[in-house]
Every structure is written in C-alpha cells, then in structure tokens.
C-alpha cells in the first residue's frame, strides 16, 4: 500500500518538487510584486479619496499640456503619451530579452537588455523634464484679489476654476508691477524685461494680453503632493529597475548565467520591469486620463 502510494499519488504538496512548478526566487518575486501592488494601490486610492472629497479637481488637459521644445503650444497629454510609449516599448524589449534567455542566446539577452536600459533612462529623463517644468512654471493665479505667478508645487496648485473677464480686470489693478511686467513679456517681447519693470503699474496692466491670459483660482493643494509622491514613487521603481537591469547586463556579459545554465535571473528582473510598466498604466489612468 505504501509503495503504491509513492508511485501513483503525485501529490503536489508531498515534497520533492515545487508545488507551483515554479522556481523559488520567481515565486517570491511574484509575491513581492503582489505586496507592491498593495503599496501602489494604497497610494492611488488615498489620492482618489481626497479627489472625491473635493468639489473641484484640476483638469489634466490644462496641467499637462506642454512638450519640450514646443514653447507655449497647447498640446494636452502629448508628452505623457510619449512617456507611455517609451515604457511599453521597453517592456517589449525586456520580454524579448527574457525570450532570448530561454533559448540560451547570450548575444540576444545583451542586446535586448541594453535597449531596455535605454528605454528606462529615456523615461526617467522625460519625467525629470516634466517635473522641472511643473516646478518652475509661472501660472497666473488669482489670490486675494491680485494675480500671482505660481508653480505646481507641494503647497500650491495654480489650476483652480478659470476666472471670468471682469474679475481678471479688477485683479490686474491690484497686481504687483513685477508680475505685470512678466505677464506682458510672456506674449509681447518687443520690450525687454528691464524696460517693462521700469514702467508704472497702471500702464503695464493695460498692456497685458488678457485674451491670451488664462487666470485660474488656486486649486486643491493636495494635487501636488499626490502627483509628486506617486509619480516619484513610480519613478523610483523605474530607477531601481534600471539598476537591476544594469546588474543583469553585467552578469550576462561576464557569462554568469551561461555557466549557471539558465537565465532565470533575467526572467525575475523582467517580472519587476513589467510591473513598473503595469503600475504606469494606472498612474497614467488616474493622473492624466480621468
């Protein structure tokens, strides 16, 4: 009886083999990613909770409408589309690296892994530009009856309700000459900033191109914290993914996996990298699309 049991009962849980038919490290990577899903889920859900508790939330098309080198052109969501494309593309090159690993094709692994690293670095560079642009931008915002120039920071949001025409006219009367000079200069560079700042405020106020000027009220402060917190945490994941991929690339070129006989490590690094892409799907959804 005992002998028949050992021969015929291929119980997955009786030891001797992996019950999930998967290598230990890979399984643990999956469970790590599951826990990371909870972390990102908690962050995004807290963002959602605050957003749902507000009467007004900025329109992503107004916030993310610039493209490097395009100046003042209004291009909503264009840059973030590029970032999304880069990340999807790097996911493809990663899966091709994993595939080359399955075939024991060292050259293929090196090639696709290198492209994945390039994609990751490109994404990080895009994010650096996007953050810098948001943090240093100067957006006319109506505060206490006057116009101030605000950036998108952790403590300010310049994308509240759009202010109606007559209120803008009133606010311009109270606005400081420095801000007025900048507002004039933004749409009319016929005079230098030095010339403009020397002019009296009431004259400057008349020179402001009100038709092109979009003055907003201050928006919900929580926007900045959640945006930088969550995209920053995702960016940190991309960064660590790039570091992991570089380590994998060095190990591959040194022939570590070749000697080991399998490229399972590439597969695990790949899981992490795809997860980064997966999280971006939801960051993209929550901050840029809806």
């Amino acid at each position: 009886m005992a002998t028949t049991a050992t021969v015929h009962k291929t119980s997955w849980w009786s030891g001797g083999k992996s019950p999930f038919n998967v290598e230990y490290g890979k399984l643990m990577m999956w469970y790590f990613l599951m826990s990371d899903t909870f972390t990102f889920g908690a962050l995004l859900i807290s963002y959602g909770t605050i957003r749902f508790s507000q009467n007004y939330w900025p329109n992503p098309g107004d916030v993310f409408n610039t493209f490097p080198g395009a100046g003042e052109a209004n291009l909503p969501l264009a840059f973030v589309s590029l970032m999304t494309f880069i990340l999807i593309m790097s996911s493809v090159t990663m899966v091709l690296a994993v595939h080359a690993g399955h075939q024991g094709n060292k050259k293929g692994v090196v090639k696709w892994l290198a492209w994945t690293i390039v994609g990751g670095l490109a994404f990080l560079s895009c994010q650096a530009w996007e953050w810098t642009h948001l943090l240093t931008g100067e957006h006319p915002t109506l505060i206490n009856g006057q116009i101030k120039l605000l950036a998108q920071t952790m403590s300010h949001n310049p994308w509240g309700h759009l202010v109606e025409g007559s209120a803008v006219a009133d606010a311009l009367k109270n606005t400081s000459p420095d801000v007025l000079a900048k507002l004039v200069y933004e749409h009319n560079q016929s005079m230098s900033m030095a010339q403009l700042t020397a002019m009296p405020a009431d004259q400057l106020a008349k020179m402001v191109n009100v038709a092109k000027l979009h003055v907003h009220e201050a928006g919900p402060v929580g926007f900045g914290g959640f945006f930088y917190g969550i995209t920053g945490f995702h960016g940190f994941h991309v960064f660590s993914g790039v570091v992991i991929n570089i380590v994998m690339l060095v190990m591959t070129t040194k022939g570590v996996f070749e000697r080991r006989g399998h490229y399972l490590m590439i597969e695990k690094a790949g899981l992490y990298w795809h997860f980064v892409d997966l999280v971006w799907v939801f960051v993209f959804l929550c901050f840029y699309l809806i």
């Binding site: 309700h161 109606e164 006219a169």
Partner: peptide, 23 residues
C-alpha cells in the same frame, strides 16, 4: 466657506479659452 470657495457654478465661469477683453 468650503462650499462657496470651491463650488464655482458653471454659469459664472467664462467659456473656456475666451476671456472677456480688458476695457
């Protein structure tokens, strides 16, 4: 105060991209 500060009614808003010119 939360309500009046954040509930800008749509009809009070100028149409998008069109601000009344300054006179």
């Amino acid at each position: 105060s939360f309500n009046t500060k954040t509930m800008n009614l749509p009809q009070k808003q100028a149409p998008k991209g069109k601000t009344v010119p300054l006179k």
